[in-house]
Design a protein around this nucleic acid. Structure first.
Lengths: 337, 337
DNA sequence: ATGAAAGCGCTAACAT
DNA sequence: ATGTTAGCGCTTTCAT
């Protein structure tokens, strides 16, 4: 395997010059640079990245920590991240926070083993223990998380508020619904929290009163959608439409409607959030909120690399990037005005 | 940041001893080992993996090279791989072979930059140029690929033959269809090739004659499924059932049936291969062939790690692992006997 | 059982 | 503009 030493010998220069030439140092003559590059090419030289990272005490590997679940949009997210890291000559390392190990453990080992030059962290919320760990690390990171609240971190997030707000508004203003239920996500999930908030705000601003029992708890799974959907559909005075905090739960509501023998949208309308692949194929196709997840990955990676490259401006204000959402109107709702 | 040197000082031993203790070398006294471990713990020492890999000229990072497309099962595959690499103290690095760069370029840089200790490679087929590159590398690898033909490589593959054979058999024997069409995948895709082969074999063995124009080319996309489906459904003497080589194309056939005003399965039956998430939600739910993709990832990773750890037995026969498939009977076919 | 020292391939002062 | 050299943190001979 060719090393800079071999190149140096062949070119009759020092390894330092070779290193400089390879790194395009302007202090090297064009002539020698050309020679060295040519020899490197002949020898089919590939720099040893491990040695380089080790010597520079940096790393061009970016970690992407994902929860230990399979989610449809992970591959989109990975793709987005990888696309921009790749363009900047970084590598992407996908790391699951495994069930046996809490996120905290995964993090604290990964943050200090020298492997990573930066970190993108997908978390349901920004907990105290997370803050503790993150406060100890020197490597740049950005969070992907639903809430971007008051933290000091750089975070990119789907614009949950706008998305849920628009949807609720659409339900009220365009469709004319007044009896609107909401199935929430997990209580510790920031995306979910913000979606309820926006839902409530939109109702209030349209002077739609929110029945307490029209807001029921879910956990983002299809099963919980089924369960909560059943609950809602069994009420004597049932809602006209159910806004599930994500599409998977909307799916569960479809199951519930089927069980109840209710027609969508005539007997009960259903909408979701996410626009997962299946949603367009449901019967009827699901009205939902779509976010560009690949874009979220890209934005996170861009922000991270910017942070890495400008270590100076570490005291910049934390950046909060929102990924725009868009309403996808299909046939699970109708105009009842 | 604590290093072995600091630990050595505190423990009043040499760094060599610390290194040994940390690596559980039996030559170190239990006593000193205990002391060193305790100090390491106090200092919150984390080994620098980059330094270790560099010194040992090995790497505990396993590369997983994926094509530059988003596919639903990538995240399952990644999960499977990561689960076992993690258990063996390896990391998983996901690498897309980017569109600008051919797989060959991605590979040849990644194979020699020292970053990876092993490689899992997902490829549509095993081309000559791929063989050329792989023949030059010293790092252990395993392929995930449809065909496992005559190559000298370790490869894990979905059992395409059995899956497609079973499906065809089911169509003939259980349902009683005799006019069966097949939409193939891309011509250079080994999974696709084997599926056609199995389809033909099963027809022949059941003395079902195969009309030439009943085998039409597709490319695994929904659009091609629509196109080929239209073609098939427009024939004066159209097939009773279409076996699409994957679910995405079956989806396209659903679109075609809709356009043609044909009822599934009464006017035309449709089956697929893969069992992607959406298939169960189609109307009617799609009969298809399912493979455990997460398992495929696990198997690939296990095989790779086995290879890495037993560098000696490099001359072993290449292993060929098949991931079992299972028929998922839903309602896009019916008994016409 | 432990220590001394070389070295992995590269970068980055510091000379010249 | 180029060379010399130390050193990144660790493993691994080779001594002892």
């Amino acid at each position: 395997m060719a090393t800079i030493r071999k190149i140096a010998e062949k070119a009759k220069v020092s390894i330092a010059t070779v290193s400089r030439a390879l790194n395009d140092d302007p202090k090297v003559t064009e002539e020698t640079k050309k020679l060295i590059l040519q020899i490197a090419n002949e020898l089919n030289y590939k720099p040893n990245i491990v040695a380089r990272n080790f010597a520079k005490k940096t790393s061009n590997i970016i970690g992407l920590i994902l929860p230990d679940i399979t989610d449809e949009f992970f591959s989109e997210l990975i793709k987005g991240v990888d696309e921009v890291t790749y363009q900047h000559n970084y590598f992407t390392m996908v790391i699951s926070s495994h069930r046996y190990l809490q996120l905290e453990n995964t993090l604290s080992s990964v943050l200090r083993n020298g492997l990573l030059g930066g970190l993108i962290l997908l978390v349901p919320n920004i907990s105290i223990s997370l803050k503790n760990i993150l406060s100890q690390t020197k490597i740049p990171f950005v969070l992907i998380s639903g809430g971007m609240s008051s933290t000091n971190y750089d975070v990119v997030s789907v614009d949950n508020y706008q998305g849920a707000y628009d949807m609720t508004n659409y339900l009220i203003k365009k469709c004319g619904y007044t009896k609107i239920a909401h199935i929430t996500g997990p209580t510790d999930n920031d995306d979910a929290k913000i979606r309820v908030k926006a839902f409530k705000d939109a109702c209030l601003e349209n002077t739609i009163s929110i029945q307490k029992n029209f807001i029921v708890k879910g956990d983002f799974t299809r099963e919980s959608g089924l369960k909560s959907g059943m609950e809602l559909m069994s009420m004597k005075n049932k809602p006209e439409v159910i806004f599930a905090a994500n599409d998977m739960m909307a799916l569960g509501c479809y199951d519930a409607a089927f069980k109840k023998g209710l027609n969508i949208p005539d007997d009960i309308a259903i909408v979701g959030f996410d626009d997962i692949f299946v949603s367009q194929y449901l019967n009827p196709p699901l009205t939902t909120v779509k976010a560009q997840i690949e874009d979220e990955g890209k934005k996170a990676a861009e922000l991270l690399i910017e942070k890495i490259k400008s270590k100076i401006s570490v005291n910049n204000k934390p950046k909060k990037i929102k990924i725009a959402t868009e309403l996808v109107i299909r046939n699970s709702t109708k105009n009842i005005k």
